[in-house]
């Protein structure tokens, strides 16, 4: 314990428990997260590069990756637009039921994904409340890639709202008054003053929604239809391969997804660092 203090601590502290707290943290983190996660990389290492490349470039895997990233991107874009709108309306305007709606925006964080999945499927199926209406116009949602976008939009909904909302609340009215005094109309003020100020937060929310959508499984499997090459997402393909005891194939797809997720995490951290630096320098 004394040794840990001397090696790691950069500043002396009178408080006890550093060795115990950090030791337990590192042990628990390693056992639950780091060692199990590294198993995927060791597993692919035993495959060899050729076998790995072959496993992740089969047409079925490529189609599932394309679908996962494409649908996630569309859903995150929808959430960027409507999340900004919802955040704007919640911050700027008064209307009946605003507090309740504000609290309910977090529902996709709290509602188990399987529940969201069966509810959306029932609604958007051709005999469902919304699906029936859309079917009259020849639009089929459930059991098509469009259904995947709907599910991913649902689960990513709170991210943009919750990242943009506090930044929008912090924008000083004086800034907009100055713009108005200088002759800008509301649209110009929005595009030139407000949008640049909330830009980093909007981008962070978009990236968070995108990252969440890529890994999503529970809400999608019910509504997707899960047809290989057409509506089969990458996480589902991992499960299919596991059920066929193709551990190496499943792990290879997992490694591709993990690497992309970690890169996204890095990008999100950089974005948040950028956005907090900006707010600091503005003050």
């Amino acid at each position: 314990m004394g040794a840990t203090r001397q090696i790691l601590l950069t500043r002396h502290s009178v408080l006890p428990g550093f060795g115990l707290a950090l030791g337990f943290t590192l042990l628990y983190l390693s056992l639950i997260v780091l060692i199990p996660l590294s198993a995927t990389f060791f597993k692919t290492a035993t495959m060899g590069w050729g076998a790995f490349w072959e496993a992740v470039t089969t047409p079925r895997v490529l189609a599932s990756l394309r679908l996962t990233f494409g649908a996630s991107l569309i859903a995150a874009l929808i959430n960027a637009v409507f999340g900004l709108l919802v955040a704007w309306v919640l911050v700027r305007y008064r209307f009946f039921g605003k507090r309740l709606i504000d609290a309910l925006v977090d529902l996709p964080f709290a509602l188990p994904t399987a529940v969201a999945g069966i509810a959306l499927t029932t609604l958007y199926a051709t005999n469902g409340l919304i699906g029936h209406w859309l079917d009259q116009y020849g639009i089929k949602v459930a059991f098509t890639p469009l259904g995947i976008v709907v599910a991913l939009t649902f689960i990513g909904l709170p991210f943009v709202v919750r990242t943009v909302q506090p930044v929008l609340e912090d924008i000083e009215a004086e800034l907009e008054e100055a713009a108005a005094c200088l002759g800008a109309n509301r649209l110009q003020t929005f595009v030139r003053i407000i949008l640049p100020a909330i830009g980093p937060a909007l981008l962070t929310g978009f990236a968070l929604a995108f990252a969440r959508a890529i890994g999503e499984y529970g809400s999608v499997v019910f509504i997707a239809g899960n047809m290989p090459m057409i509506s089969e997402i990458a996480p589902l393909l991992i499960i299919t391969k596991l059920e066929q005891y193709d551990y190496a194939g499943a792990t290879a797809i997992a490694v591709v997804m993990l690497v992309i997720s970690f890169l996204l995490l890095l990008a999100i951290n950089l974005l948040q660092w950028w956005s907090s630096n900006r707010t600091k320098s503005n003050r």
């Binding site: 996660l37 890994g215 499984y217 996480p235 499960i239 596991l242 551990y247 997992a254 997720s261 970690f262």
Partner: peptide, 20 residues
């Protein structure tokens, strides 16, 4: 590193324990 599990797909979270 503590935030890492949030970046991992739930399916992969299960897979890692199957591999172990």
């Amino acid at each position: 590193l503590i935030d890492l599990p949030f970046a991992v797909s739930p399916v992969i979270s299960g897979l890692i324990y199957v591999l172990l």
